[in-house]
Structures are given as C-alpha cells and as structure tokens.
Design a binder for these strands. Structure first.
Length: 454
RNA sequence: GCCGCUAUCGUCCAGGGGACUAGGACGCCGCCCUCUCAUGGCGGAAACCGGGGUUCGAAUCCCCGUAGCGGUACCA
C-alpha cells in the first residue's frame, strides 16, 4: 500500500488537512505501507516557501512522519509537459480559447446539465476530451459507487495557455508516477475524481503510464473523507478559535491528544473506545470504519481529552513539556501540585505562575477576602504558620486546621484570605501544597505584605 | 442553475431489517468529595429531518421532498 498526503501550501496546515494527514499516516502504518508527502504548489501565485515550511513544521509537531518526499509538484513541471504533450498527440486533449462566458453560452444553448465541449484551436488553454457517452464510476472505499455521467461533465481545462498544468492533471500524473495505490483525501475532491480518472485513462491510452520495468501501473483506489466544519457547521476559519495546527500547539495541546481527538472525527473504533494511544489507533484504524457524515470540530472535547493525557503523564515528562512551553525552568514542584487541575500546557502559568513570580494584582479578590474577618483570619494563620512544627504539606495542613477550629469558621474563611495573600488571586493549586512549596520564609513575607497592603 | 455527497442526543462515535425501552463519550443539570479551581464517584435530561413505499416487522432497504455541504476557475 502506498498512500500520500498532498497539501497545497496556500496557508498554514488546518485541522482538516491535519486529519487527512493523520488518516493517511494511520493507514500506512497499520498496513505496513508507505506514505508519500507531496506539496501541491502548481499555483505559484498562492504558494510560498514559508507555507511549505509551516506545513512541514506542523507535521513534525504532530509526529507524523513520511517515507518519501516532500516532493514539490512544481519540480515535476518537465514531466507534466511531457505527459500533456502525449495527450495532445494522442488526441485526448485539445487547445481552446473558450472563456467562462463561452461555456455559459454553450449551456444556454444545449441545456444547463450539458457539459461543455469545445472546438480544437491552434492555441489556447488545454482541455481534456470527455467521452460523449457513458459514465465514469468512482468506486469509493468509503461511499461506494458514485456515477458521473459524461454528458454532465465539462471538458476540463488541464493546462494554461502557457503550458503550465492545472491541479486535476498534475494530481493524476503524480499519483500515477508515484505508484499510489490508495488516494485518501477530503470529500471536496470527490467531484474532481472523475476528471482525474479520465486523465489517467487518457494517459494509459497514450502509453505514458509505464513504470521502468514496462508494466502498466494500476489505477489507484479512492477514499473520500467526510469534511470537517467549525462548531457552527460552517467552514473552519479563524473565527472558530484554534483552526490551524500551530494554533493548537500554541494553545497548549499535546500532539498525542490532538492525534487521538482528530482520529475520532470521522472514525470510530467500533466499540466505545474514546481514549486511545497512537499505537492503538494504528492497530485499530481501517477505512471500512470511516464515517460518511461531515463532522464538527469541538474544542471542548479536545480540552477534556488533553486533560486526560496530562493527568496520565509522568511528572517528569509533563514538567519537561511545560518548561519548554513556558520557557522557564525549575517548575517540577509547581507542576506536581497543578497536574490534576490543568487541561492544557497553557493553563499552568495562570494557575501557578504566582507561586514563582509573586502574587498577581486582583483588587476585587483583595476586596472580597482581605477585609474585616478575612484580615483577622490571615493574622491568625500567620501566627500558626510561623510556629508550625514542620512546613511540609501535612505540617501546614495541621497548623491551618487549628486556626479554622480556633476561629470556629468554615475552612474557606481562613483558606481564601490566605490564598489571596500568597497568590493575589482566588484560584491556585491546593493551599497547603502551595504554602509548602513557597516555604516558611517566603510565605510569611507574602502574608506580611498583604497585611500591610491597605 | 447544473452535477454530486450527506442526514441518529447540542457535539463526536455506535447501531446497517426483529436483540431499540436506540448505546458510549464530550458538554449540560443534580448529588457526593472538597480550601479555590479542578479531579474523581454516582445519578439525570437529551436524538432516529419530513412524507410515501417495501415488509409480518424499518433508525436500518427504496422513492420523493427538505436541509447542510462540496464541485461547477487558464485555484488547489
């Protein structure tokens, strides 16, 4: 089995593209086949080297590797011209100066459901001859047979007047030359498939489909994946939050969680498995179980899944990732007491950063907890902590429990003022853990500053 | 407009003629745990797009309608 992932570098790699890459990768790894990476950059206007870099970078972050490539489609222009000329010579294609208006006029005359047929001219863009009768049937591995009647198909333009080839031609030739056995891509390409199949058949007839050993290359099998949409059912875009792989990374998601989540969009293991390691995904993934319905990208479920991965991760590993994410070091103790409270790497600093860089400013928190009884409770807590026999979590807990008991109040009446005093905010890791982490000296200093505050 | 794809809880995935009183997960609601936020545990609400047909029997098969999406570029 040889599959391919063929993004066009017209922007960052979006979630939909990442899912297509993942499915191809899963399929190749499951079957012990090869994955070819091809960059579809035949549109020089819109393709940039920066975008190519970004796509490669995104795939690397996702830890999806490939076995061949990246092959730049633009580098194959020579082969494309040769193949194009062969089709022209064999009479499967012709030059035409017909414009979009001409096509419209043709349909007005012959009916809206009649495909455009042009007259061969000496110059102009190159169109493929679509047979007058019959139909091209796409045997889609996911959707079954889809029949496209030739009368409905326009003679597609396969090359510009300057001889540079267009997408539907380049794809067909490249898939053929690369010996691709399974074309797995988004459903938006289903309608393009008959055109590509027609190019492939014309290419065979023109005799340009022979591999080195002279054998005819079999036509690839096709599988069209359901499309991915935003939460509102519309096409994915920036409005939907993290829509590109880079944005997912910056939002603090883990690549393994993203892989797991993306695999669940348009595919299910068959039983009720939700959390699956990449190894398990590889083992269980099959095209037969891919759904036909479009799916929506729902970030809340990704967040939950990401949280599961974070909680299940060894402390050292999580620390390493958070340190790389934040660019800080020496975070292990803070990470340890935050692990069960965060869902993404990005959640860590807002939760626990104040333990490292000092309390944050939150006037409303001070107003609510550091006035009246709160101040008094804080003073008691200070005294208790100053005299605590030991300053580990248990020692701190004991000392503070005594304060709660002594004041005969609900625990929060002591703990919240304390939390605001040492972190500045009402949200933090556990209070005993936080205080133990700070140590006696720093804790008392922060309490004193809070007490002196207003 | 034309051509095509799709249609099960708010979302994702099961179920593919009788096992459906339609299952699991996220989210939501409630309870428990609890120092905040979380985590964890328990419970709950929540769906077969509409209409015909086939059949003893339809979420499941067929047709029509509707809706969503895609294609219809000298874009990919």
């Amino acid at each position: 089995m040889r599959v391919r992932f063929a993004p066009s570098p017209t922007g960052a790699l979006h979630i939909g593209g990442a899912r297509t890459a993942l499915f191809n990768w899963l399929l190749a790894r499951h079957a012990g086949g090869e994955l070819v990476l091809r960059i579809e950059d035949t549109d020089a206007e819109r393709s940039t080297p920066e975008n190519v870099e970004q796509i490669l970078d995104a795939l690397q972050w996702l830890e999806l590797d490939w076995d061949e490539g990246p092959i730049l489609q633009s580098a194959r222009a020579g082969r494309h011209r040769e193949a194009l000329q062969a089709l022209l010579d064999a009479g499967h294609a012709y030059r035409s100066n017909a414009t979009a208006e001409d096509v419209k006029e043709y349909k007005r005359l012959h009916g809206a459901d009649r495909g455009f047929r042009g007259e061969p001219e000496s110059a102009g863009a190159v169109r493929l001859h679509v047979p007058a009768d019959g139909a091209t049937v796409v045997h889609d591995l996911i959707r079954g047979e889809t029949r496209f009647e030739h009368v409905h198909l326009d003679d597609p333009v396969i090359a510009r007047a300057d001889g540079s080839v267009l997408y539907n031609f380049a794809v067909a030739i490249d898939d053929l030359d690369a010996g691709i056995t399974h074309v797995v891509r988004g459903e938006d390409h289903l309608s393009n498939t008959p055109k590509q199949l027609l190019v492939l058949e014309a290419a065979r007839d023109a005799g340009i489909d022979r591999s080195e050993d002279g054998r005819q290359t079999p036509l690839p099998l096709y599988a069209h994946l359901p499309l991915l949409h935003g939460p509102d059912g519309k096409k994915l875009s920036k409005r939907h939050g993290a829509a590109s792989v880079q944005e997912l990374r910056d939002a603090g998601y883990l690549p393994e969680a993203v892989r797991n989540y993306l695999a669940l969009l348009g595919w299910g293991a068959g039983d009720d498995a939700t959390v699956m390691s990449t190894e398990e995904l590889i083992e269980r993934f099959t095209l037969e179980r891919v759904s036909r319905n479009p799916a929506r990208f729902d970030e809340t479920k990704l967040r939950w899944l990401n949280g599961r991965y974070i909680r299940g991760m060894p402390l050292g590993e999580l620390t390493r990732r958070i340190e790389r994410f934040t660019g800080r070091e020496g975070l292990q103790d803070a990470v340890r007491i935050s692990q069960e409270k965060i869902h993404t790497l990005a959640d860590f600093w807002p939760l626990a950063g104040s333990l490292i860089d000092g309390p944050v400013e939150d006037p409303s928190a001070r107003e609510r907890w550091l006035t009246g009884d709160g101040r008094a409770a804080l003073a008691d807590a200070r005294a208790a902590l100053a005299g605590a026999a030991s300053f580990d979590e248990a020692g701190v807990g004991e000392a503070l429990a005594a304060v709660v008991e002594g004041r005969a109040v609900k625990p929060r009446e002591v703990y919240q003022p304390l939390r605001v005093a040492i972190t500045g905010s009402t949200v933090s890791p556990g209070i005993f853990e936080s205080i133990a982490l700070l140590g006696r000296e720093e804790t008392l200093r922060r309490i004193d500053r809070a007490l002196a505050g207003d």
